[in-house]
Design a protein around this nucleic acid. Structure first.
Lengths: 220, 220
DNA sequence: CATTGTGAACGCCTTCACAGCC
DNA sequence: GGCTGTGAAGGCGTTCACAATG
C-alpha cells in the first residue's frame, strides 16, 4: 500500500471522524455491510457532500453506484484516528467529574485505558476506582509519560495550570482540560478544552437571539 | 440607547463571548479598571485582532489610546449572552456526570439555577443533591417548561433520544447533550453536543499526525 | 442507474494594516 | 504615542454540480 504524502486533513474533518467512526461501529454491529454517503451523513447528523469530501481526504474507499464497505471504512477511519493503537489516560482531579470520566472512557471507546488517577484530597487518596487506586498528586512526577499518554484535567480552575505544568513535565502527549481556565503549554503537547459554562452560555445566547440561529436544514 | 438592527454575530464569535466574559470577571475581581484588546486577548488565549473584531459586533465600547472599561464591557457581554436574566437548568441522568454538572453550574456562572434532577434508577430517586431531590424520569412531563429552561442530557446513549423527546415535549428552550449519540429535534429547540470520546479521539489523531497540527503561535 | 470523487464557486471567518481618535 | 474600529485582502471549509464509474 502506497502511503500518500502528507495529505492535510482540515480540522473540522478531523473532529467529524470520531462521529463517523461511531456511526460505522453501530452500522457494523447491526450487520450492515454497505453504506452510501447519504446514509452515513444521516447517521452522523451532517450532509452527504460533507461526508464524501471528508472521506476523500483519507483515500478513495468508495464504490460508485454502491457506496462504502462498512467494515473496511471503519478500519480505515480507526487507523487514521490512531484507534488501532493503545492509549493511556491519566486523570487528575477525582471529584464527580473525574469519576464520571474514569467510567465513561471504558464505555465509549476501547483502546483508551485509564492507568492512573490523582487528587490532592487526603480523603480521596487511596480510594479504589474500578481497580485503580487514587494517588496523591505529588506522585504524578514519578509516572513515566509517553506521547501516547493523555492527561485529563478535572480539577478546579485555580490549580489547573499547575496540574497542566506537571503533566507536561511528565511527558504526556496531549492534555484534555475540563477546568474553566485558559492554559498555556509551551512544548509540542496538544491541548483541547471542554468547558461546560461556555456551552451553557452559548445556548443562552441563541435562546436570547433566535434570529441568529443558522438552521442546519432551515427553509431556504 | 438605540438598539442597532439585527446585527449578525458569527458563531465563532458567540462561542468566544463566554470566554471573554470569564476573563473580564477575573480582571474585574482583580480590581483592573481598563484592558486593551491585547491584554484581553492574552487572557482569553486568542489574538488581539480577533478580540477587537469580536467586540465590534456588540457595539463601539472601546476608547482609542486607552482600551475598554472592564466593568462596562463585562456588563455588555453579559447582557448579550443573556446572563443578566435568570436561567433554569434541569438535568436528566444523575450518574457521576449528572452530579458533577449539578455542582459545577453553581460554581462557574451565576444565574443558571438547577431546578430539577431526574433519573430512572429507583435507588437514586429521592436522593437529595444540594437541596434538590432527584425525581423519577416519569415526573419530567409534569414540569412546566419555558424557553429559558435548559435541559441537560447526562444519561446513557441508548435512552438519550427518548429523554430528548421528553425535554422537547416539556418545552425547554435548549438542550445540552452529553450522551454519545446524534439527536434530532424538529422544533425550534436548540441543541448542542459535548462528547468526551470525540475530544479524546481528536487528540489521538493529532498525536498520530503531528504534522497536521496548526500551531496557534507557530513559527511562520 | 445509483453513487462516488472532485474541481469550481461560494460564503464566511481571520488577519492585516492603517486611518482616526483620545 | 497608544489603541480602537474597520475596510480590504487572504485563507479555508462547505456546497454545488457533474463527469466518471461499477
Amino acid at each position: 500500500m502506497v502511503e500518500r504524502f502528507a495529505r492535510r486533513i482540515p480540522e473540522p474533518t478531523v473532529v467529524r471522524l470520531p462521529i463517523y467512526q461511531r456511526a460505522l461501529r453501530e452500522l457494523s454491529a447491526g450487520g450492515i455491510a454497505t453504506v452510501s454517503s447519504a446514509e452515513l451523513a444521516d447517521a452522523a447528523g451532517v450532509n452527504a457532500a460533507k461526508v464524501r469530501k471528508d472521506l476523500s481526504h483519507l483515500g478513495t474507499y468508495g464504490t460508485p453506484g454502491t457506496g462504502y464497505d462498512v467494515n473496511f471504512l471503519l478500519g480505515q477511519v480507526r487507523h487514521e484516528l490512531g484507534l488501532d493503537r493503545e492509549w493511556q489516560v491519566v486523570i487528575v482531579g477525582m471529584g464527580n467529574l473525574g469519576h464520571a470520566l474514569a467510567h465513561s472512557q471504558r464505555f465509549s471507546t476501547q483502546n483508551f485505558h485509564t492507568v492512573a488517577l490523582f487528587d490532592v484530597d487526603p480523603v480521596k487518596v487511596g480510594e479504589d476506582v474500578d481497580g485503580i487506586k487514587i494517588c496523591h498528586l505529588s506522585e504524578l512526577s514519578s509516572l513515566g509519560g509517553t506521547s501516547r499518554m493523555i492527561g485529563v484535567i478535572a480539577c478546579p480552575a485555580t490549580s489547573a495550570q499547575d496540574v497542566c505544568n506537571r503533566l507536561v513535565q511528565v511527558g504526556v502527549g496531549a492534555i484534555l482540560n475540563f477546568a474553566p481556565a485558559i492554559l498555556t503549554v509551551n512544548s509540542p503537547v496538544l491541548l483541547r478544552n471542554v468547558d461546560f459554562a461556555v456551552e451553557l452560555q452559548t445556548l443562552a445566547f441563541y435562546v436570547v437571539h433566535p434570529e441568529a440561529v443558522s438552521g442546519p436544514e432551515g427553509t431556504p
